[in-house]
Design a protein around this nucleic acid. Structure first.
Length: 864
DNA sequence: AATGCTGCCGTTTTT
DNA sequence: CGGCAGCATT
């Protein structure tokens, strides 16, 4: 999402302040004002209100703008009221963004868009309203992955399945993938169900679902799957929603999975006659290869098939429709508008079905397809490179992005000896950009895998370059948050065994496995929740006195908290609970590096509760809509994976690690074959199209993976870049290496496959460098002393080398001497506590208690 | 019941 | 190489 207004010379700014109502603007001579500044295709996408519409919106073509304007248009035309529009996105961020923009366009009217949200939050909301129809209560808990796994572990144990050979985590993944495909336990193909746990996989899935009902809980997949079941089994309920939603809008359609497709399909169907069963939504065989080479929108439904009344999941192409009874005349499909970009489908491994978008015209007969191909983001060279690259994919609908922008700078490709040098080179370029006055917020480094980040972090810490890692663990996934939530969940829902079990011994209360096991036995025997079992067991002498007393205290505490809930606000209650349980104290006593951060997070959690009316309301939302990537903070370079970069844009984008095996990832290639390769290529395309003005690609010849160094080959994607738009440069980091050869069978060695552009002077020099023993370009930067494992391999050049350059560099960047002295005890955000062992200008060498000796710029540490 | 050691395994991750 | 899980200690 987030395609911020970037229409400097192409259109009006998107965040136009709006005064007056829509009606007022609708009266304007040239049509409604909100349509101004849209290009013809965008305008068509906004104004084509009737029937199914697929908007193929390439990167940077104003997708969000179209979506929001379309909603404004529907409202201003009086075609629907806000509560009659269903608008779904994948992420909370995307939903927020849409709300924000809509608010800017419409004034305050957004409050009345109750059905704008993520698939999961909307599914969850519908489910809560009709919870009893799917054997839940409306206050059901949404389980996170951790809870899921723990529950499955218990079930596996009960079935005597070796948890080593059949990890619970794997089963969780399997169940999730089944749910993504819309398969309830009885619908899982027998062969697949049997593939886990000696044929017991399917049975455990069924048991798992039963247990969820008892726990009054649903996992993420259930929010959709149970919603589908609800609709299938209760046609009257479905009809109610079909009637309500006059318009449906879907964002990022290329990322929808089968369950989401089925769900949309049900809702987009015109209301059925009362009494008509809608039970025949059959997921097709979705295991067939995703790429069929050809997208055929005509053949299957070509003979004027009337719109289907029955909801029959169409199997992937080119299978004929299943012979499914008579197809009677029916009301047309709803006004559904899906926006997406098949070239940005990068979540296939998580169950997204690119087929959904490739098959749209087939699934929604009579659909109008509109292509947005005018890119308002990137310069010519960048766009050409990205387009040329993605053109190597076969399974795509095909778009040609174009821009009216200048050609700008060519995309650069830079080779380095190893990943360390790569980080150094990028570090230098960043400093150059900084000196040139670029805003670091407009710079991003996009990696394929998160382990690559470390090298950069190390480097940035050394340079004192402010950076920000995007996408780490989600807020509510952090241990301290889940612990705190578990306390609150136990208070709110005494049947929530998973929550109780999580905190029964956190902080340590002397209630170990033995005690928990006893509680389980009790609970199972008497069919009561764990908490009630605890209450009962305390009255017996089955426990040792110590444990018994401890457990009794805990039960009494919960009773007290539950009583207090009636008289105190939920935020206050949370504070009391965290305090009295000793949980806060536990972290206060903890001396590890992140303890302070955890305490901050807990405060943040309590603070965030204020937005909700009560504990119940808070708990309902926390697991679905709690993310914190909103924190902007100070100016800093962004470091993230390519996946989390989707939807963002930056002036300068660095793309390191373009090597075979890493990118494209070997594992994807092995597991997904050609489809995997194409998805990797789409990832590369996403990476390039994030850049507005500069895109810089890097590859290293040697990379350490899992501790061992291996020689790598430049990525095949480099071959696929058009020579004309690319410039090969030498590594600015300068090679401190040389050493014995071994680029191996690099394509870049074999210039034939590259064409002449790859033998630029820079690259030749880089090539030449590798044979030399000495430093690369003069003033290069072998400056940082590192205990790299090279030395053990005979690259002895890393002995205490002169540090002059680094000293110079550091001095330049601050010019002051350090305010720290030897032996000072300090704290560092990343490395924790340590003491200063060496001072060199503003550069400190610190012996960290946990992380060992590191060099750090003093502004990164504080006195402890 | 809590602590320490060994051995395994290792992408991406919207909800 | 490093983080975590499961086991063997005390």
């Amino acid at each position: 999402m987030t395609e911020p207004s970037k229409l400097p010379h192409h259109g009006v700014p998107e965040h136009q302040p709006v005064a007056g109502g829509i009606a007022a603007r609708a009266r304007a001579a040239a049509g409604p004002q909100y349509l101004n500044g849209l290009n013809p295709e965008q305008r068509e996408a906004v104004e084509t209100l009737d029937g199914p519409v697929l908007v193929l919106a390439g990167a940077g073509t104003g997708k969000t703008r179209v979506l929001t304007t379309r909603i404004a248009h529907i409202l201003s035309q009086g075609r629907a009221r806000p509560q009659e529009i269903l608008s779904v996105t994948f992420t909370n961020k995307a939903a927020r963004e849409m709300k924000l923009r809509l608010g800017q366009m419409l004034g305050q009217a957004v409050e009345g868009m109750p059905w704008l949200g993520t698939f999961h939050s909307i599914g969850g909301r519908i489910l809560r309203i009709h919870a009893e129809l799917v054997q839940l209560k409306s206050n059901f808990t949404v389980l996170d992955v951790d809870d899921q796994v723990r529950l499955l572990k218990q079930l596996l144990q009960a079935e005597n399945i070796d948890d080593k050979r059949w990890p619970a985590r794997m089963l969780a993944g399997l169940i999730d993938s089944w749910k993504n495909r819309g398969l309830s336990p009885s619908q899982v193909p027998a062969g697949e169900a049997a593939s886990f746990g000696n044929g017991k996989g399917g049975k455990i899935y069924a048991t798992y679902q039963e247990r969820l009902k008892i726990l009054n809980a649903a996992d993420f997949g259930d929010l959709l799957l149970e919603n589908i079941r609800l609709f299938r089994e209760n046609p009257d309920v479905l009809r109610q929603y079909q009637n309500r939603f006059k318009f449906i809008l879907v964002d990022e359609y290329q990322d929808t999975n089968v369950a989401q497709y089925l769900w949309l399909r049900l809702l987009s169907q015109a209301p059925s006659r009362p009494g008509r069963a809608l039970s025949d939504v059959i997921p097709g065989d979705l295991t067939s290869p995703r790429l069929r080479g050809e997208v055929d929108a005509h053949s299957a439904s070509g003979e004027g098939d009337p719109p289907r009344t029955e909801l029959v999941e169409t199997p992937p192409h080119p299978d004929p429709l299943p012979a499914s009874g008579a197809r009677e005349q029916a009301a047309p499909l709803k006004n559904i508008c899906c926006v997406g970009d098949d070239d940005q489908s990068i979540y296939g491994w998580r169950g997204a079905e690119v087929d959904n978008i490739l098959r749209f015209e087939h699934d929604f007969p009579g659909a109008k397809v509109i292509r947005l191909e005018r890119n308002y983001r990137s310069t010519g060279h960048i766009l050409a490179a990205a387009s040329h690259l993605i053109a190597h994919n076969e399974g795509r609908l095909g778009k040609t992005l174009r821009t009216e922008d200048i050609d700008g700078e060519k995309v650069t490709v830079t080779g380095s000896w190893d990943s360390e040098e790569e980080a150094r080179a990028i570090g230098e370029e960043l400093e150059e950009l900084q000196r040139a006055g670029e805003n670091l917020n407009d710079v991003a480094i996009l990696v394929r895998a998160s382990f690559q980040m470390r090298e950069f972090e190390d480097r940035f810490v050394t340079l004192g370059l402010p950076y920000r890692v995007i996408g780490g663990p989600r807020f509510y996934e952090r241990a301290e948050i889940r612990d705190a939530l578990a306390y609150l969940r136990t208070i709110n829902s005494p049947a929530d065994d998973l929550a109780f079990e999580r905190i029964v011994n956190v902080p340590k209360r002397g209630l170990g496995d033995a005690t928990v096991q006893l509680l389980h036995d009790h609970a199972r025997k008497r069919r009561i929740p764990l908490f009630e079992a605890a209450r009962a067991v305390v009255e017996t002498d089955e426990l040792k006195p110590k444990a018994r007393g401890s457990l009794r205290d805990l039960v009494m505490q919960f009773d007290r908290w539950r009583a207090q809930r009636e008289v105190t606000s939920h935020t206050e209650l949370a504070e009391i609970v965290l305090d009295e349980s000793g949980y806060t104290e536990m972290w206060q006593k903890d001396r590890s590096a992140d303890a302070a951060g955890r305490l901050d997070n807990l405060k943040e959690l309590v603070r965030s509760m204020e937005e909700f009316e009560n504990l119940q309301g808070f708990l309902e939302h926390i697991s679905l809509v709690m993310d914190r990537d909103g924190e902007a903070g100070d100016e800093a370079v962004s470091l993230m994976t390519l996946h989390s970069a989707k939807g963002l844009e930056f002036d300068n984008v660095f793309l390191p690690g373009w090597e075979e095996g890493l990118f494209p990832s070997q594992r994807t290639l092995d597991e997904q074959g050609r489809a995997g390769l194409e998805e990797e290529r789409r990832l590369a395309h996403v990476g390039l199209t994030r850049a507005r003005r500069r895109a810089k690609i890097y590859f290293a010849t040697n990379r350490r993976i899992h501790g061992t160094w291996s020689t790598t080959i430049p990525s095949r994607f480099l071959d696929e870049l058009p020579a004309h738009n690319v410039e090969i440069t030498e590594s600015k980091g300068g090679s401190g290496w040389g050493g014995s050869g071994g680029y191996g069978a690099s394509r870049f060695d074999n210039l034939e496959s590259f064409g002449s552009s790859y033998s630029t002077p820079g690259w030749q020099r880089a090539q030449a460098n590798r044979g030399r023993g000495g430093g690369g370009r003069s003033g290069g930067s072998g400056f940082e002393e590192r205990q790299s494992s090279y030395s053990s391999e005979g690259f002895g050049r890393t002995k205490r080398g002169p540090m002059v350059i680094e000293g110079e560099l550091v001095a330049k960047s601050t010019g002051t001497t350090s305010e720290f002295s030897l032996d000072d005890r300090v704290f560092h955000q990343k490395f924790g506590y340590g003491h200063v062992v060496k001072i060199d200008g503003n550069k400190l060498t610190i012996a960290f208690e946990k992380a060992g000796e590191k060099k750090v710029v003093d502004s990164f540490v504080e006195r402890a």
